[in-house]
Simulated assay, not measured.
Amino acid sequence: MKKITTVLLLFALIFSLTACASEEQPPAQTTEVVSQTATTIAQTETTAQAETTAQAETATQTEELPLLKVGVLKGPTGFGMSRLMEDVATGATPLNAEFEIMPTPDKIVPLIVQGELDFACVPTNMASILYNKTGGEVKLCAVNTLGVLHLVGSAEMAEKINGVADLKGMQLSSSGQGAVPEYLLNKLLADNGVDGDVVVDYSASHQELATAVAAGERELAVLPQPFVTIATMKGEGVKQILDLNDEWLKLYPDTPITTGCIIVKKDLLEKNPQYVDQFLEGYKASIEWVVGNHQEASVLIEKHGIFPKAKVAEKAIPHCSIVYLDKEAAKQSVNAFLNVLYEANPKSVGGKLPADDFYK
């Protein structure tokens, strides 16, 4: 309608100018005015058509991008997603995604089994469980977190311990009984020859144990991030003594602990592999930004509900081993890690080790 009105006004202007020219101007000047006005009309029509075409193309592109539903766990496994969540929320990326924050892995399982999530950030052993539970309907795309377990304790204990073997004859506490922390700690103790000489108390949760350590009620404890940071920030004299990922690498240099990963629904991967790759590229860029911008990332982590306190997240990020390792870089380490868990308890990986098609 705007274009038609513009054209009509221009034609009226031509008529007016022509009439005036017949009384006041020589014929050559009248011809020039008409020619210039006709050119203006053509340019206006061309511009309007270009704008309409661009708008139509933008609308089509937006409509063609399917909505991705993404499950994100609270804690380090979800930290790397914070920048991408912000970009989607502000429209800084063409990706069309909806994120659901989950407090614990068990809450995310039914959504994946029922096919309600396209992507999910989960513990690596949970990815294996889901692969087995769904008959191979999920694929591991990349590892997003390496080892997050640390030994913390008093300054006095820190002076005595330089490695796992130094724990001989000591008593320590750990959270995560019947899960990955217990299996990894047992493996480290056994491979350092002190599994029968260390007493481990598994009676407390992550939060309870972090509080007890900060209060000086436990001298030694194994905790995951960010609870390590909570304990060291709140407890006077509490030290981070050993990074268990470093201790693991002393024994297995080429196979780091692969704690967390991102998985994708097989159906989406088969139907729209390019969009899957586009999302993963955005996710990788998000992780790299988080690793390089601790303070800014911590604000987004709190804003999007991944962890409640930005100050703790900021201190924890450097110790959370946040990475992006694709299939080629991570497969050997994931297989080794899952094999350790399988030997400790087959149920921890879903009853059996996944086949090669577990990987994207």
Rank of each mutant, 00 (worst) to 15 (best):
K265C: 10
K265H: 11
K265D: 11
K266S: 13
K266F: 04
D267T: 15
L268W: 08
L268P: 08
L268Y: 14
L269T: 05
L269F: 09
L269G: 01
L269P: 01
E270W: 06
E270A: 15
K271P: 08
N272F: 01
N272C: 04
P273E: 01
Q274K: 15
Y275F: 10
V276C: 10
V276H: 11
V276N: 07
D277M: 12
D277Q: 14
D277N: 02
Q278K: 15
E281I: 06
G282D: 04
G282I: 02
G282N: 02
Y283Q: 08
Y283H: 10
K284A: 00
K284T: 04
S286I: 14
I287H: 13
I287V: 15
I287M: 08
I287Y: 06
I287T: 12
E288P: 00
W289V: 11
V290P: 12
V291A: 15
V291P: 10
V291H: 14
G292E: 07
G292W: 07
G292N: 13
N293I: 06
N293V: 01
H294A: 12
H294V: 03
Q295T: 15
Q295C: 02
A297Q: 04
S298I: 05
S298D: 07
L300M: 07
L300Q: 05
I301F: 11
I301S: 09
I301M: 02
I301T: 04
I301A: 03
I301E: 06
E302H: 01
K303T: 04
H304W: 11
H304I: 01
G305H: 00
F307Y: 11
P308L: 00
P308Y: 12
K309Y: 11
K309V: 08
K311T: 11
K311Y: 04
K311P: 00
K311E: 04
